[in-house]
Each structure stands twice: as C-alpha cells, then as structure tokens.
Amino acid sequence: MSEIALAGVSKSFAIAHKAVHALAEVSLTLPKGGFYALIGPSGCGKSTLLRLIADILRPDAGSISIGGHPPAEARKRHEIGFVFQDASLLPWRSVLDNVRLPIEIAGRSVANPADPMQLIELVGLADFAHARPSQLSGGMQQRVSIARALALRPKVLLLDEPFGALDEITRQRMNLELLRIWQETGTTAVLVTHNISEAAFLADRVHVLAAHPGRIVAEIGVGLARPRTLALMRTNSFAQAQNALRDALFGEDGAAEEEAEIAAGQAPT
C-alpha cells in the first residue's frame, strides 16, 4: 500500500572490465495498491529494476522512493516482500518454518505480523505445513515463497518472474491465486515477467522495457475489469490488451514510444 516512484534511475555493471548499461534514466510512478507488470526481452534490466526497488542494488544515479521514503528505509521497516524466480526456500526448514522466517528475523520490530498458518492456508498448502520444500512440486514451492513474502504484511510485493519455471497449466493456476492473494492483502504488487498473456491478465498497467540500454519504451494501461477470471482470457478485450503489448514489444520504435491506452468495454470507473 505504498506508492513507488523512480526518477532518472540509471544503473550499470562492470562485466569483463566493460561498463554495461543495465538501466538508463528510468522514471516511473506506480500508485499504491495497484498491480504492475514490467515486461521486456532478456537483458532489458527488468530484474535489475526490481532489485533496485528492493534495495538489493543501489542506483548509480537518480532516486527511488517507496511511500515517500528511500528503499533502504522501507526495507529496514520490513515493508518489502520479495519473491524470487526460484522459490529460494531453506531446504532444512519445514514449509511452516520457511514462512515463519521473516517473522523470526524481524523479531519485535514488526508489531502485527501475519499468522504463518493462515498464510499457508491462503496459498492452499494447509496439508503440507510440516513438509520439507524438497517434498513439494515447483508450483507448491513457489506458493510457499509467496506466503513467506507476505509474512510481515509488506506494503509492496515484488515478484521476479515467480512462475517462469512452471508449466503453462500450473502458471495459469498460480496467476489466479496470486490475483486472489493480492486482492485480499491490498499490497502494491510489481511483477517482472516475459510472458505477454501473464502481464495482460494480472496487471493494471504494464511497463514495457527495451534493452541496450535498459529503458522503458511504453506504458500500457490494461483496462480489464476485476476480479479477473480465466473466462476473461477468451474475450476480445483481453486479446486487444495482448496485441497492444505485443505491438509495444515488437512494433516500430515510433509506435512503441507512445503511450497506448486500451479501451476495454468493461473498463472500471
């Protein structure tokens, strides 16, 4: 429930003694409570962007704020939840103890953490609370990692291609579940993905990135009504939203620069 704002953010890495511009002059504002997607080809810096917001990386130039504060402050106040591409669970801990980890680390500095058991129920794993991560499927592991990210009731939830390693069927099921969880928690969600239909299905607004250097080339509002269901994916307006994203990713540069707004029939007011 915090607004995220980036102004003129640049980041480069030294790879083999050469500076690689991962991000150049990125500015964007993500109003609080929304669901946002960052989409782009490999190497466009979308994961870097997410890591800058989470204070895992520091920008070379520009400023970032979460709810008006620098990311480091938001991180120390445990306002950031992060979901990695691989679930990154601690294999020696049970599902319950993995979800409990952030609460253990925060200690008394967080006033009202979520109940780990309720979170496990929220992601539909009540029967597996005492299982080890290695006993679970990839999709279930990722659900545990989402529950873990929610343990301290974060104001922003950052997801770095969380379902990228899952098969299409599991991915769609996880997308539905993620929407339900996001709606129940009311957190500001930022999803990095390279899947066009995933971005269109989940997000209120999709930011399209291009590589060399990493930059935002389009900002596309997805005006599809919520709650979104799988039936929505068969509609024309969903196809239009996907086409607009595809145009921004693959179309001529000129067209991609413009901000396109999808006027879906059932756009919310």
């Binding site: 204070d55 992060f82 990695f84 990154s88 952030p102 253990e104």
Partner: peptide
C-alpha cells in the same frame, strides 16, 4: 550460500548474526 538466499536475507534486513546462524551455518 545461494545468491538468492543471501538476497532474501538482505531484503529481510537480517543482522550479520542472524544471517550466520540461520543461513550460512546450515
């Protein structure tokens, strides 16, 4: 220690001691 796990502990603002006991040692 895996890169992602160490990034996770950073995002969670774990102290050096916590990172040692809860991550590095196991």
């Amino acid at each position: 220690v895996e890169q992602n796990a160490s990034e996770l502990f950073h995002v969670l603002s774990a102290s050096r001691g916590q990172a040692m006991v809860k991550l590095a040692l196991p």
